[in-house]
Write a protein that binds this DNA or RNA. Sequence first.
DNA 1: AATTGACCATAATGGTTTTTTGGTCATTTC
DNA 2: GAAATGACCAAAAAACCATTATGGTCAATT
Lengths: 189, 189
Amino acid sequence: MDRRQEILEAATKSFSLFGFKATTMDQVAKIANVGKGTIYTFFENKEDLFHEIAFTMIKQMKAEKDSVINEQMSFQENAHLVLMKMLEFRESHVLLSKLIAEEKEMQTPVVQAVLVKVEREIVHYIAEHIERAIEKKEIRSVDVQLVAYLLFKAYMAFAVEWQVTHEEPLPEEKIVAVFRDTIFKSLHV
Amino acid sequence: MDRRQEILEAATKSFSLFGFKATTMDQVAKIANVGKGTIYTFFENKEDLFHEIAFTMIKQMKAEKDSVINEQMSFQENAHLVLMKMLEFRESHVLLSKLIAEEKEMQTPVVQAVLVKVEREIVHYIAEHIERAIEKKEIRSVDVQLVAYLLFKAYMAFAVEWQVTHEEPLPEEKIVAVFRDTIFKSLHV
DNA sequence: AATTGACCATAATGGTTTTTTGGTCATTTC
DNA sequence: GAAATGACCAAAAAACCATTATGGTCAATT
């Protein structure tokens, strides 16, 4: 297998396990079974390596989203499916969870920047879909940016933050129901 | 003016300016123009003083809300007015913003506990009003807890978090409009 | 030409001293 | 004599500094 890929996989493993700060280049080199110098023939520096991996993660999220979207179905159904996929993704994607945790307990600027980028990207995807739904006249014309932001934040609130103040997580059905009954309902043409 | 009140005002000033951890009792004493010992004749300790101030803040918010609420008007109109009041109240929320910032950058357990309490309290108020509106058949029957939580989180997202990723704050009219067009709209009976 | 790991400057760590701070209480004040 | 005070103390935080670890380089090696 090519060395570049091995390095990427080793680094992904390490970032997922220890986070950005606690991952050392020596460690990555050891896991990848290459000399440390080799890493620098493929990547500018640690940050560059990290960005490439974060970018891959974002691409994966987009791919997961696209695999679920069905142009035949309604905006509401698609949105529901995508939200569920995201929920699943967050739990399964160790790297993302680790980064969210790292950002929370120590403010690593590099990590913060990446997470802001992830947020932008997700909101952007949502906005695109809203835009398309408006064009298809599936939903009313609304301020796309704001509604996309609202959907994202509401989703994060129920799926992630809820647990903080109410020990048990909110069951998926409830999350889906409240979205259906409030925000989505209001978007009906 | 009575000393207790002077101490409370001095402490409020200091907590708002520097947060809980960075506020020292010496400082509060100096601002309040009292000896440090005097503080301890009125308050058990720093935490107690802080709790009293946080509680006052919650009461103030409730008072502002009640001053605006008009039982004759519809839920929508009242909700709109309260939302506006809260937004305009933002400056006097300096303390709240400061605490949110402090909680984010260093995890002060005392601050975290207070913020959880504030959240609970506000969500509780919102829930009460929703409940009443449902009884009056002004709005559809919905999961009161979840909708109250959604309203609170959406408000915080637009009024507080928006600035983090989009340097400029979101103008009030836009915030009001998006609430009107999405969540409130969906609650129509 | 690609790979490597000893090497270096810098940053992080950890242990220790110094300073600050929450809280007390004997003394002072009114 | 009740209320107020600030010097005082133990404990916690900060500053300091020696030591280690780490990101990144590059002459030697494959």
